[in-house]
Design a protein around this nucleic acid. Structure first.
Lengths: 198, 198, 198, 198
DNA sequence: CATGAATGAGGTTTCATTCAT
DNA sequence: TATGAATGAAACCTCATTCAT
């Protein structure tokens, strides 16, 4: 309808794409706004038509990442399966998702570090954990209720699962020769499942 | 040779202590050399008598940390116990060690992030994983050999254990209200053990 | 020639009105062209259809101001009065005029400052003084010639009058609680008149 | 006593001298910090060891100016003279002082302009007027009390005197060919005195 | 051994101006 | 005529590092 289709969303994504790439390559502080502008195919000044400042890029990138991951964690279609299959499916989806996001790992750890002194970042991460638990806890509870699992504490199990995801990813991050992300996530998950089967 | 031969070591540790503190509080990039000097009770110029430059502090701090953690991982006294008890002991020691190092977590994640583009940091982290595996693999193997554990792949189990350590720590890092470091590490380890007992 | 021949004048005044307001509020350098555009209800780009550049606004505004003040200083109807009444009338008109222009004072002092390094501005101010003297000198001379005033130097008196106007305004500019513009201008003028009456 | 005599005061004055010069030549906004550094014979970075930021220079310069002018306005030795002589002496001192400060006039008017939106600057100017009145009012009152002057309102007279000082200076600022600072201040003051003599 | 004054390269951000639509 | 997206020069300020004392 409007003469020029709204260019803002396009530009913002263009800039966030570029920022992700440059941050991953150089780290947040070594990344110069000019690098990002160049990578985005825009000029330095144009960046500031669409973002507030450099820090703003952090929150914007986090938002985009988690929006994607939250969709990934949707458990709509897990209800019909056994708890075990639902967890395995979930694990498989997460492991694929993490692999696709792997280019963002350097950024991720920088942001984790930031979370210790930046309340906004901290909040985003807390929300992430919350979402995760809301997705997984009911499935585990269902397994316990149905007698498929032992009488475990669902929250402890959910956290152990999450630890396997995050921990394996972290190990993989610093030794990609020794660790194979989906294989070792799957192995870890299976070990946990062995531990909770009735 | 110099009048007080160990004034150097004393000063270096003084500086690294200060750097750890300031890095943890402000992050590597926001930390000013002047902050570190002040925290160390020295002057800016004096710092440069004992360190090469700011980047040098990263490697020096990592070295100090891992020297400590490596001692922690020594398995000298694990040989006489059952594999299960040995792993539980190990887990308990690690969980305590991590807790003591928790003030360094913000630095740790910054360094993980750095590992993606700094070969020296990467090497330190690889060595760490190597050390860990060398400590834990024989214990697991012993458990398998003695029939205490199922016929699992020791490396997969070792990595799952490490993932529990690192992953729980990471989760704790961003939600210390929900996660209790040693309780949830212990829970995770127990779940894994349940999964591998014969 | 163009469909609405005087849209240009209308737009230019629209822009100068906006510029006066914004300059007075923020000062010349803090005023952004965008602020002026917004205040004028136009777009940034449109401004440049009617003005050369930001500096051009200074001269245009000065021109408009002095055109107004020159009309104010017209002494057409002073000829029939006594020199004293003529001067009092003149003072009263000026004092009213200054009060009406008071919203422009912040700009005025910025322009005075500019006069020291901008020849165009300097010329405008010199012309202003010239105009003033041409209006007032004959009246004073008439007062001397008619014996209404002592044998004073008309130029010295004219300058003292001007100093009272400008000086009181300046004092008022930085203490509007203590100084009341027309009251203190009138008081000053009366003191001067007392000094020159024969 | 101390190995290096305190260098701070020296540097600060060095910087303020340079800033006055550069501000007077280019105006506050056109003056680049680098210009000031160069003029001061220091490096850009060194400036910031001694001043907070560019704005800080404004207040510091004002402070230095007014400290000087306040000393000028001291009326210690005016008590023994007739009120008329005291005022003439005062006027003469002020006129000399203004002439010496004339290089700062471009700065002064820029600061006057600033006063409209900067409370700190406003306060400095108000204090200045206060000081002035405290110096001059008692002298005028004495003249009234002794019968040397008519029954005038001392405050109105004081303000008229100040207006003559400030107004003549302003006129001189934009036409130094037509106006001669001390001659025309003296003339103005004499006219006022003629007006108030009993 | 220790100091801290001085340096200056480098990065973020702003904003006057242009021009395709 | 009017727009507003895009540009890029320019300037403030920081801070790691050096070196004379």
């Amino acid at each position: 309808m409007s003469p020029r289709p709204d260019v803002r969303d396009e530009r913002v994504n263009q800039i966030l794409d570029a920022a992700e790439l440059v941050f991953a390559q150089k780290g947040f502080n070594q990344a110069r706004m000019e690098d990002i502008a160049e990578e985005a195919g825009l000029s330095k000044g144009t960046l500031y038509l669409y973002i507030k400042d450099k820090d703003d890029l952090i929150v914007s990138i986090l938002d985009r990442i988690f929006t994607g991951v939250f969709e990934l964690m949707s458990t709509r279609d897990l209800a019909e399966k056994s708890a075990t299959d639902a967890l395995l499916d979930f694990a498989s989806k997460m492991s694929h998702g993490y692999q696709k996001l792997s280019r963002l790992l350097p950024i991720a750890y920088e942001f984790f570090s930031l979370a210790f002194r930046n309340p906004v970042v901290q909040k985003v991460l807390k929300t992430y954990l919350q979402h995760y638990l809301e997705s997984v806890l009911p499935v585990i509870q269902r397994g316990v209720d149905s007698g498929e699992f032992k009488e475990v504490d669902p929250q402890e199990v959910a956290i152990a699962f999450a630890a396997i995801f995050e921990g394996t990813t972290l190990l993989w991050a610093y030794n990609q020769e020794l660790i194979h992300l989906d294989q070792h996530i799957l192995a870890g998950v299976n070990l946990l499942l062995e531990g909770i089967w009735a």
